[in-house]
Nucleic acid binder design. Structure first.
Lengths: 343, 343
DNA sequence: CAGGCCTGCCAAAGCGCTTTGACTAGCTAT
DNA sequence: ATAGCTAGTCAAAGCGCTTTGGCAGGCCTG
């Protein structure tokens, strides 16, 4: 069933039927009703390729997903997608995903643009120095960054969590409890979110007269074994940390494992705080959670990004920004600094 | 730069240029070379919407991803996508993802078909009773199932792991070591993979004269806290299991946590085997792995599915099947049944 | 009542590609 | 010499939609 057949059936021109269905005002209400009724009855749906060719609009959002060195997609990604996907469904957009080796994004963006394959893109995993912002601006391809780069903040659209403040808050909590040697198990610090988290931690420490020690700070992949190995190493130092900040629940689990193996008790001998992206497959349970955490839903961030991008595309507004705050939830994994250590 | 401009520049007709670029034989080699050179120089790339409209082929593969009850996408999904995405890139296909509530897939498939939005789809999360097979056959939309349903096996295309044999092997390993009370922390058993795993376990147990006990078997979401809570409950029974099979590393981690909390030692007091999908964010480490596991890469499965589907689409072959075997790797989490228990 | 202005509809021209059917020139076979 | 191929090219007809530019006819307005 195509437009021609439908309009023949209705005894109307294709023009009128098209307009009726797309809500143009040049059609009488009566005709519109009739067209809509028959279209529904015939189960008519316009061919999207034809429509795209005619309008130049694709009603598709692109996600260019960088693979890390280990051919792995950031595990946070599936939750982000779940959030964004919900909005796309609601607004009638499709989601196109391109998996590509980190750093090789450029030709993909160019191809998406040249082909008019997408109306806009979401930028994942922004780095401090990121050439994608300039590229996309040059390509005139609407985009929203999930996170930030070091470009001027109001020069592009982004949705981000206040990572610096989050880690500042967490660090302050530890510092107030007497901790002075605080370890950091961070993501890659060429990524903006990780750099900002370190900033927040260091700022808080300096405010309390504590000196950040590079020896107990690591920047790496946010996965379980990395957390484990790092924490194990830290605990075996002559001067081990009394607390640790983890950039993800994944490496936090590893750190916890190392703490247990070392015979230490979390919250007593060692305090631990994790940044919890509310990963759907690792829900942090119960009333009094096992882990003290900073929480912000990555799924929600996905929804915000999608909404903002669609707004940008349809209303052609200028750059917009959204800064979310992480929630700080005290759990069982933090406590006052042990006496032996403060002495 | 479109075809017309390009052919004007070359002094050829659009027909000839199109044929030259698409490798048709009716063009002299000399002309083809010239066309290709200029096309590259001009950075010409055909508009994919126009091509799609003309050919009716979309060069796009659809993934309809069901959301579980908790609005969560199966975490295995991102690894699968990484594998499939690699193949799509290599073969010039795009990946279209539709996130949809579990059970509401039907209208989405119908729309994808009617719109000629995709050339084929990958079916995720097949259930024992799954109406999608029939639906897709009726829609004449090529598809490959990642897993199986209870439809006749050669009546549709699938890529699956031999889940029954995998769990049979694992169970046998435990049974040989003297274990008779074996617990199961499984995925939802309306999903085929989970049902088959249970079958494999029960078959092995019966072969060794052990009776499966429903009280120490659970079918649920494969996430950490579920594994924890289940194992905790099992260990507190009057007659606790001496071994446990976990359907995922995620719930295995939870089970491990419960074992530790209970003061038991994995591999000594309680044996544990996990099915490891080689999740990129939870790599199982080292020479002598901490967990005895069945291994099969879900990323590889993604690649196989993508390859098979593209073959189906391009060569229009009949149904094809691929049954992969999981690798069994003995680690530190299994050992002989403790004496107290056998007595 | 002439002129202008809506309202509601239509025919036809794209959008940029593929593909059909035809045509020419040169060559072979009869 | 005529017919019949083949190789190489082209003009034009789609693919199914949107959108431009008209064109009737009814309604005001002065």
């Amino acid at each position: 069933m195509n437009l021609k057949q439908l309009s023949d059936k209705l005894g109307l021109s294709q023009t009128t039927v098209s307009r009726a269905l797309n809500g143009y005002p040049e059609v009488s209400e009566e005709t519109r009703k009739r067209v809509e009724a028959v279209a529904r009855e015939m189960n008519y749906q316009p061919n999207s390729n034809a429509r795209r060719l005619a309008t130049g609009k694709s009603n598709t959002i692109g996600h260019v997903v960088p693979l890390s060195h280990h051919d792995m997609i950031n595990p946070h990604f599936s939750d982000f997608i779940a959030g964004a996907g919900e909005i796309y469904n609601r607004c009638g957009y499709d989601m196109l995903i391109s998996v590509v080796n980190a750093g090789a994004e450029k030709p993909v963006y160019e191809a998406l643009r040249r082909n008019r394959r997408v109306d806009g893109v979401i930028v994942h995993g922004p780095r401090v120095e990121d050439e994608r912002i300039d590229l996309l601006r040059k390509l005139k391809l609407p985009f929203v960054v999930h996170g930030r780069t070091n470009d001027p903040e109001d020069s592009y659209s982004w949705v981000d969590v206040n990572n610096r403040r989050a880690f500042h808050t967490a660090a302050k909590h530890l510092l107030e409890a007497g901790h002075r040697r605080i370890a950091l198990i961070n993501g890659w610090e060429y990524m903006t979110f990780a750099a900002k988290r370190r900033d927040g931690l260091e700022k808080a420490m300096r405010e309390y007269g504590a000196e950040p020690d590079p020896e107990i700070m690591i920047s790496s992949e946010m996965i379980e074994p990395v957390g484990h190995d790092a924490m194990k190493r830290f605990l075996n130092l002559d001067n081990p940390p009394t607390a640790v900040l983890c950039s993800s629940v994944l490496n936090a689990m590893g750190a916890m494992r190392a703490i247990h193996e070392h015979g230490s008790r979390p919250g007593r001998d060692v305090s631990l705080i994790a940044y919890d992206d509310c990963l759907s497959f690792l829900p942090t349970t119960g009333e009094r959670p096992a882990i003290t955490a900073l929480r912000s839903s990555i799924r929600l961030a996905g929804m915000h990004c999608a909404e903002m991008l669609i707004d940008l595309i349809e209303k052609k507004t200028g750059p917009r920004n959204l800064l979310l705050e992480a929630e700080f939830v005290v759990g069982a994994s933090t406590g006052p600094v042990p006496q032996t250590a403060t002495a």
